[in-house]
Computed example of a mutant assay.
Amino acid sequence: MGREIGPVRLEMDCRCPKILKQTIAWKRAQYQRTHILDLFLPDWTRDLIETLYTNCFERPGLQPDSPVGGSEFSNESLRGICSVLWAGDQPVATHIGMIEHGRLHYWFPAYDPAYARYSPGTALFTEIIRKATSHGIHCVDMGYGEQPYKKKQTGTTTDVFHGTITDSRWHRMAFAAEASMIQALKRVPMKETVKRAIRTINPSAGIKKLK
């Protein structure tokens, strides 16, 4: 990629709103191509990303044209981050995530399909890992899920528990029934093929709206 397109470099903390929007567009296009649930379909998801991304501009002494870098990541509370892998002057892969006290939550990696043969997504992740320590990042959290790429790229896995607290017996029963049904569906053979078929017909299947 460096030889055919241009010098490859990582911009760990890009503050360009156009790049943020491009990342979301690439990710949504990927969801549509692969018939995977479009997590950006609800308005609140996009609003959350925008809010996290603009959080750092509200901190005293930090201006939009003054990127944060170095060991400051290790001391920061929660805020959004957008990383870009450049080849020459072309953004070939990007990632939207969250920084929290030196922990990078790896959320939405995306890439330009025009450069797919160079595996830009893998190259982006590799560069982030390579330069993480110098930016004060001591851990990259791949988040909940059992996707093969996560198992391939992680060295440690942990269990994630979830549940509900309520004084309503019927609410507890409904939650238990829903959880049992989800676990049963996860054991169904070819579940991913079935989910993609459903979302081909109804792209919003599985989306829960905020009340």
Rank of each mutant, 00 (worst) to 15 (best):
R3H: 13
V8E: 12
L10R: 10
E11G: 00
I19Y: 12
I24G: 01
Q30F: 09
T34Y: 06
H35R: 06
I36G: 00
L39S: 02
R46P: 03
R46N: 05
L48A: 06
I49R: 00
E50G: 00
T51S: 04
T51E: 11
L52C: 08
G61P: 08
P64Q: 02
D65V: 01
V68C: 02
V68Y: 02
G69H: 13
S71Y: 15
E72H: 07
S77K: 08
L78T: 06
I81F: 05
A87I: 05
A93C: 07
A93L: 07
H101M: 15
R103V: 13
H105T: 12
W107M: 03
W107L: 08
F108D: 00
P109D: 01
P109M: 03
P113T: 00
A114I: 14
A114M: 12
Y118G: 05
P120L: 04
G121S: 07
T126R: 10
E127Y: 06
E127A: 14
I129V: 12
T133N: 02
S134E: 11
G136E: 00
C139Q: 09
D141F: 13
M142R: 13
Y144K: 07
K152P: 00
T154S: 07
T157V: 14
H162R: 08
G163E: 12
G163N: 09
T166L: 10
W170M: 05
R172Y: 09
A174M: 15
A177S: 06
E178F: 09
E178C: 11
A179Q: 11
I182Y: 08
A184W: 11
K186Y: 13
K186H: 12
V188I: 09
V188R: 15
V188K: 13
R196W: 14
R196M: 11
P203I: 02
S204I: 01
G206C: 02
I207T: 04
L210P: 14
K211E: 15
